[in-house]
Design a protein around this nucleic acid. Structure first.
Lengths: 259, 259
DNA sequence: ATTTAATATGTAAATTATACGTAATAATTT
DNA sequence: AAATTATTACGTATAATTTACATATTAAAT
């Protein structure tokens, strides 16, 4: 947690530590119990929500910046972030509800417009998908709220953040067919119905369970164990684990999952 | 063409007109007569080559900037540019052969390092594909050469430009299966063998001509004419044109071309 | 009329994807 | 102990798609 002094310094002198005119926006998707959500924050005094964004330090790569920013927001260190698109036009961060007032007050600035923070920023979009029970949502200093929103019931978003979110969602759904998911989302040992439900939730459609299992198993990224999960008064499903070697290879080189 | 005065002003005061720390790099692929090439420039006094890059004006979007920069380099106004990735890490533009000397001399700067131009830049990568006979290669003011290079015999590249080029090439090959190409590359009326060769050249592999024709025609993006091209002492192939409405729809919404 | 080198075209086989139903089972209830 | 309940496990037949492949046609030159 940053001190107020550090925050004040960052607001005033941020352009000395951070790159100007280029920033990161992270779309943090959370999955839990058949629900897909996205982490949003609401700036103080504003009634629209924003993605978790941040600036790039002069000493770090854009991938590192995205990871640091995601860590600050979620407390998680092992997020797998995917860069999907850059957004940049002079109007992208104009909005009648632009939240400059608060910061202007914090640092006693006459005209926030003169300020590095409110300049034209090109934003590099990353997304990640995580188990949302693991996350301690932790808003930025000037945020009034930080919470998960169901992907189907989004609140009004500030700036072009809805456009970014939608682009991330589309990119994620496409990536699903070429890269594995689930390692950070499911327990170490999971059942076929669990991973099946995960895919159905993200894609927002039913997948035939027999065909899904056949295809997923044929990729080699999961291995069947000789154990079952006790799920109460029903037949006990077998447990599976990810074959981490093949999983990582598929993350790196891609695969085909024609579900 | 810019005057020397304008250039001098841009070098000194560029940060007033352009965004800092974020730039565009265009990978300009050129196709002609069964050859796929890429447009590169060689900075004065340096023996490595660079992509055509540029800065983003404070008044334009990144897409507009990419288009303007590509126009400056090729003289062409109707290039279709595709954003494929952003590149950013503190070392990406360090190189033992870094071409600061020339510019330092031009503007009488003691230490080029203090200069906005030689700061850490995050670069947004775009690629385009054009008929290279149409292009008048036109290097930037401080470039000694600007020419097409065969994609299979690249010269040494400066900075991370080889990485960017390779990423663009991969992205282009992938896009080929989901978006149409050819409109800017082929004559208005073209034959099946011509478009077949285009795809083979870009993909770098043989495609069965019967199956290729079947699949391409089934997308609906080309229409057969009742005319033939005279190609000398051989059977005259039929001419085709693009169905521009369907072509543009496929550019926008994607398509499947399972070649 | 012959030669040459290119274009045009269709089908059978192989592969892949889809659709679909029933038996097994774990714990709870009766 | 038997019955109930809700869930998992599993295989095959059909449809759709993709792949492989060979011959007749033709335009101009000789």
């Amino acid at each position: 947690m940053k001190t107020l002094e550090e925050i004040h310094d960052e607001i005033i002198n941020g352009h000395l530590y951070y790159l100007r005119n280029v920033s990161i926006d992270n779309v943090i998707f959370g999955y839990h119990n058949k629900e897909l959500k996205v982490l949003l924050q609401r700036p103080q005094g504003i009634h629209k929500w924003v993605l978790s964004g941040g600036y790039i330090k002069r000493t770090e790569s854009i991938d590192e910046a995205a990871k640091r920013i995601a860590r600050e927001r979620t407390g998680l260190d092992d997020l797998y972030l995917t860069q999907f698109m850059a957004f940049g036009n002079p109007d992208r961060t104009t909005d009648p509800d632009i939240p400059t007032r608060l910061i202007s007050k914090l640092v006693n600035i006459k005209d926030a417009k003169d300020f590095w923070m409110f300049d034209y920023f090109v934003s590099i979009g990353y997304y990640t998908l995580t188990e949302f029970e693991l996350v301690k949502p932790n808003g930025e200093f000037n945020m009034e709220e930080c919470q998960w929103w169901d992907i189907k019931k989004l609140p009004p978003l500030l700036f072009d953040h809805r456009e970014i979110l939608v682009a991330a969602f589309k990119a994620m759904r496409l990536h699903l067919y070429h890269y594995p998911i689930g390692y950070e989302l499911l327990p170490h040992k999971f059942t076929l119905p669990e991973i099946h439900t995960l895919y159905e939730t993200i894609l927002g459609k039913k997948l035939d369970s027999r065909n899904f299992a056949k295809k997923l198993i044929s990729t080699g990224i999961i291995k069947k164990l000789n154990e079952r999960r006790n799920i109460g008064p029903h037949r006990s499903p077998f447990l599976y684990i990810f074959d981490k070697v093949k999983y990582d290879k598929a993350l790196k080189n891609g695969m085909v999952l024609a579900i």
